[in-house]
């Protein structure tokens, strides 16, 4: 029998994700990838695997019960988590004994956290990925969020050494979020003054994350961008990349995440790839501002980020240094 893990409490929102679905953009299928891919890479390193189904969770009180010994790990948002009564160090792997209860009591920094297991959670593979497309209800666990009583079957459960990610490789996730952006295809549709306030150092407006946010997009509140009088308020719909900032008629930015291949609103900017994981941690009322960079700088930041991922990968199999549990 495969080990089973029971969801005792799904917290505010949890679902099965992975690094995403690719190659079907021409029929409108988005990546639906985990929003913090770096945290997922770290999880894969801790669990010594690649692209297995993971859990993406929002909110406190998330609880799992184990009916077998399983190696697990948590990354992403900083949480106060306990295995029965023992506190768990953030961004580490640990052994959950048969019968034990994993409980996340509190989220202390960031928004979304990720839980994975050494082995492979049984999930629906659709078009090359396990990730859940919530809108269309496919992938993951029947295309739906996790609910209390759901059972995760662990196929190919494996025995591995526990490990940890050093603090210098754990990013900050607190508000305010400073996001670096490059000019988007329709940056020219907006007045010079409103662009200056949008992304120029010393001028930039702070936006507030509205309550209108989900895995598709994040709407911001603040001073609306101003369209030039001659500029159309919508465009002929065109392909978009994740991290595109669209401006609808009301002038308030919408950050597009990993659930759309095409958009019809003016694309004022694109968030640097290296900063996109941070989008997983924007929550209502957080503050956000944008800083313009050129695309070559975006490339350089991305190379730096990949170096950090390589550093993560070099940790695999190494013995974790001893040390007290922090926080």
């Amino acid at each position: 029998m495969t080990p089973a893990i029971t969801v005792r409490n799904p917290a505010i929102f949890s679902l099965i994700v992975d690094l995403g679905r690719t190659g079907f953009g021409a029929v409108g299928v988005p990546s639906s990838s985990a929003l913090d891919r770096y945290a997922c890479q770290a999880l894969y390193c801790l669990l010594d695997c690649a692209n297995a189904p993971l859990l993406e969770v929002i909110g406190p009180k998330f609880a799992l019960q184990f009916d077998a010994d399983v190696i697990c790990a948590i990354t992403g948002a900083r949480v106060m988590a306990f295995l029965d009564d023992a506190p768990l160090r953030p961004w580490t792997s640990f052994r959950a004994k048969k019968g034990s209860l994993l409980l996340v009591k509190e989220v202390t920094e960031g928004f979304r956290y990720y839980i994975g297991f050494a082995g492979k959670v049984k999930a629906e593979a659709v078009m090359g990925s396990y990730t859940t497309n919530l809108e269309c209800r496919f992938g993951g666990l029947n295309g739906t969020p996790l609910k209390s009583g759901d059972i995760l079957h662990l196929e190919e459960s494996r025995e591995i050494e526990t490990n940890l990610i050093p603090l210098n490789l754990i990013p900050s996730m607190n508000s305010p979020h400073i996001l670096r952006v490059m000019e988007g295809p329709e940056a020219d549709s907006f007045t010079a003054d409103s662009c200056r306030h949008f992304w120029e150092k010393g001028y930039h407006e702070l936006f507030t994350v509205s309550t209108n946010l989900n895995r598709t997009g994040i709407r911001l509140d603040g001073t609306p961008l101003v369209f030039k009088p001659e500029a159309p308020k919508s465009i002929v719909s065109e392909g978009i990349v994740p991290g595109t900032i669209q401006i609808p008629g009301d002038g308030l930015p919408i950050i597009m995440l990993n659930e759309r291949t095409i958009g019809g609103y003016a694309r004022v900017a694109v968030i640097a790839r290296a900063d996109q994981d941070r989008l997983a941690h924007l929550k209502a009322n957080d503050l956000v501002c944008f800083e313009r960079i050129i695309v070559e700088e975006g490339e350089r930041l991305w190379r730096d980020k990949q170096k950090r991922i390589t550093q993560l990968q070099s940790l695999t199999g190494s013995t974790p240094p001893p040390g007290p549990i922090q926080e």
Partner: peptide, 29 residues
């Protein structure tokens, strides 16, 4: 003309210009 927005959504054209209308300023959820 293209398929996207959500999987399988066909963008069709060209609509008779006598029945054109603007997008909603604030989309329905």
């Amino acid at each position: 003309f293209t398929v996207g927005f959500t999987p399988g959504f066909p963008y069709l054209g060209t609509l008779d210009e006598r029945i054109t209308a603007p997008r909603l300023e604030t989309p329905r959820t």
